[in-house]
Design a protein around this nucleic acid. Structure first.
Length: 505
RNA sequence: GUCCUGUUAGCUCAGCUGGUAGAGCACGUCACUUUUAAUGAUGUGGCCGAUGGUUCGAAUCCAUCACAGGACACCA
């Protein structure tokens, strides 16, 4: 039974009683004419008026009851709408006869959504409140809310029943408003820069653009499998070939991998591609993007993140190899010597896989000794070719690529490079990927001949970047789990006995 | 995938070395016309995550499973 809980039964009975009184517990004719925030802002002068009230002003407000304090013939309730919380004074003698005792006190309670009409006044304790001359039920809540002081803190309930979390925790609502603003500002920023927002397929015949395991689904009409996209990269570059010179896409990617504090199977990123530009231009636009976000979010440039303090006004640039000894305190004389790096890693009790090349070993050193020390925003540049399969080689030094990753608070936030646009080189790199897939790397890229063909028509020199929106929002809201910036994070289904029985049938 | 920790009333949590299940809030009843987690009195409320085992006796000990959180591994 869905509603067999005794508390729910009791509240259903109340709803039935209300129906008998001729009161619809699910009314559909709200007369609300302002919000709580506006009411509180417009009536700040009431405290200076005679008797601290103005009976000529009259408002209709709605919201969910969060507090219910009955004191005999008068009560205070607090109602909350999206904009704020309002105290309402409800006295027996101001309402229709009988309503206060028979309806209000008996059948209306915390959790219900009500509409109140009345005038503003300031209480003896100095709180601007509404003096109600009418109160009506809009929506009966038949499930009781969690406890009013502690709320819900159980993470499982908070994630599985996000609506309860949102009802009970104002700071959670704030986090998701910030998230929404970040996405909206990101869109505006790139539009103002002349970028075109595009939508590319979510279902791909070949899962490309990153190294990750895809989700597979089936298209019945064509009788073929499709992959949920792991990245939009290869489609966005096709558009650059087609002549669009600045495109971006803000959307979901799907990766069939583990879940933890920074990984959810579906996550949001922005990718943008900019023709006739290089990664140097991307560094500049990234700095500008952060300034834009902070300005419009009214955030100070110094932000706490856990125990850390991040200064978003100080972006620095360090080549990867240099960062190893200037930031990671790795002896400078070993950073270009495979054997010495292996010996060094072993001396630090770090397991080293066999067969790694120099670039991969430098990447290991970076991950172990540098990454977590990059607190203020840092562009790590000049990545080795060995660990940058999609990036264009530097013309000056073919061992390194025109690439950077942006790190903040010890975490990667963005990945960017001047794009590879040599179709023959791209073909060869795909072939190498296919070989490593055949030898067991199930995350290696598949051959995408259609994309190679697109490049063969000529893609202008282009720079492209991806930014993980979820991780960015985590930074800006001081949240430490990706689940706290996703409204509905992925959760395992709960197996109840009822469901098991259904499955057996 | 591995390890650690947790799961007790609608919610937040106690419950010792095994002996009939506890509090606060919420809810019911009563009192109370300016409260701020209102207050006072009183009452209802539990398959102690699931399944097995040990025991005269299990919320408590053991095993397996489920879910969650954390760490590590893997992964951008």
């Amino acid at each position: 039974m869905v509603f067999d809980n005794k508390y729910i039964q009791l509240r259903i009975e109340k709803a039935e009683l209300l129906k008998k009184e001729g009161i619809n517990p699910y009314a559909n004719d709200s007369k609300r004419n302002t919000t709580i925030e506006k009411f509180l802002n417009v009536n700040t002068d009431i405290v200076n008026k005679e008797n601290k009230r103005d009976e000529k002003r009259h408002y209709t407000l709605s919201g969910r009851i969060k507090f219910f304090r009955v004191m005999g013939k008068a009560s205070f309730i607090k109602i909350e709408d999206e904009s704020g919380m309002l105290q309402v004074y409800v006295a027996r003698d101001n309402l229709t006869e009988g309503f206060y005792n028979d309806v209000f006190k008996k059948n209306i309670e915390v959790g219900d959504i009500v509409e109140v009409m009345g005038y503003p006044f300031v209480t003896g304790q100095g709180e601007l409140s509404l003096h109600a001359d009418e109160l009506r039920l809009l929506t009966k809540a038949i499930s009781p809310l969690p406890e009013k002081f502690h709320g819900v803190t159980d993470k499982e309930i908070r994630y599985r029943k996000r609506y309860l979390d949102l009802i009970m925790n104002a700071d959670v609502r704030k986090t998701f408003k910030t998230r929404s603003k970040v996405i909206s500002l990101t869109r505006r920023f790139f539009e103002e820069k002349g970028f075109l927002e595009v939508e590319t397929p979510m279902m791909h015949p070949i899962a490309g653009g990153a190294n990750a395991k895809p989700f597979v689904t089936h298209h019945n009409a064509l009788g073929i499998d499709r992959y949920l996209r792991i990245a939009p990269e290869l489609y966005l570059k096709r558009l650059i070939v087609g002549g669009f010179e600045a495109v971006f896409e803000i959307n979901r990617n799907f990766r069939n991998e583990g879940m933890d504090a920074t990984h959810n199977p579906e996550f949001t990123s922005i990718e943008f591609y900019w023709a006739y530009k290089t990664y140097k231009d991307l560094i500049e636009i990234t700095k500008e993007y952060f300034r834009y976000l902070f300005d419009h979010l009214d955030l100070p440039t110094q932000l706490p993140y856990g125990d850390l303090e991040v200064d978003f006004s100080r972006f620095s640039e360090v080549p990867l190899i240099e960062s190893l000894y200037t930031i990671g305190d790795v002896p400078q004389e070993i950073v270009n010597d495979k054997d010495k790096i292996i010996a060094f890693l072993k001396s630090k009790n770090i397991q080293v896989k066999n067969g790694l090349n120099l670039g991969q070993l430098q990447g290991e050193l970076f991950d172990e000794f540098v990454e977590e020390k990059l607190i203020n925003p840092t562009f790590i540049t000049e990545y080795p070719v060995d660990i940058s399969p999609l990036a264009r080689r530097s013309d000056a030094n073919p061992e390194i690529t025109e690439r950077f990753e942006l790190f903040i608070a010890g975490r990667e936030i963005a990945n960017a490079f001047s794009e590879l646009n040599d179709p023959v080189d791209q073909y060869e790199r795909f072939k190498a990927q296919v070989e490593s897939k055949e030898s067991g790397d199930d995350e290696a890229h598949e051959m995408d001949l259609d994309f190679v063909e697109a490049l063969s028509y000529g893609m202008a020199p282009t720079a492209g970047q991806g930014i993980g929106i979820d991780r960015l929002v985590m930074l800006l809201t001081n949240e430490h789990s990706i689940r706290d910036v996703l409204l509905f994070p992925a959760m395992k289904p709960i197996h109840t006995e009822e469901k098991n029985q259904q499955e057996e049938e």
